[in-house]
Amino acid sequence: MKKTLSYLIAVLILSCSAPKHGVVDSAHEVDFTLAFGSCNKTELPNLLWDDIVDSKPNVWIWGGDNIYADTDDMSLLRAMYDAQQAVPGYSKLVNVTEVLGTWDDHDYGLNDGGLEYTSKDKSQQEFWNFMRVPMQSPLRTQKGVFRTKDFNMDQGSIKIIILDTRYFRTPLTPDHETKKRIKPNEYGIGTILGEGQWVWLENELLHSKADFNIIVSSIQFLSREHGFETWGNFPHEVDRLEQTIVKSKAKGVVLLSGDRHISEFSRKSLDGMEYPLIDFTSSGLTHTYRGFTGEPNPYRVGKVIFTESFGLLNFNFKAKKIDFQIVGDGGVVLEKMEQVF
Rank of each mutant, 00 (worst) to 15 (best):
K2G: 11
K2N: 11
K3Q: 13
L12A: 14
K20E: 09
H21A: 13
G22R: 04
D31M: 00
D31H: 06
F36Y: 15
F36V: 09
C39V: 08
D50M: 02
D54I: 11
S55P: 10
K56F: 04
S75H: 08
L77W: 02
Q85P: 02
S91F: 09
V94G: 00
G101S: 08
Y117T: 03
S119I: 00
R132W: 01
V133I: 15
P134G: 07
T141E: 11
K143E: 07
V145K: 03
T148A: 04
D150Q: 10
Q155D: 03
I158M: 00
I160S: 01
L163H: 07
T170I: 01
T173C: 11
P174C: 09
I182F: 15
P184Q: 12
G188Q: 09
I189N: 08
G190Q: 07
W198F: 09
E202D: 14
L206A: 15
S217W: 01
H226A: 14
F234R: 05
R240A: 15
V246Y: 03
S248V: 06
K251F: 03
V253R: 07
L256R: 05
L270A: 04
S282F: 03
L285F: 15
T288V: 15
Y289W: 15
Y289G: 03
P298G: 05
Y299E: 12
K303A: 14
V304Q: 11
G311K: 01
K321N: 13
I322K: 10
F324L: 11
I326A: 05
G328H: 08
L334F: 04
E335W: 00
F341N: 13
F341L: 13
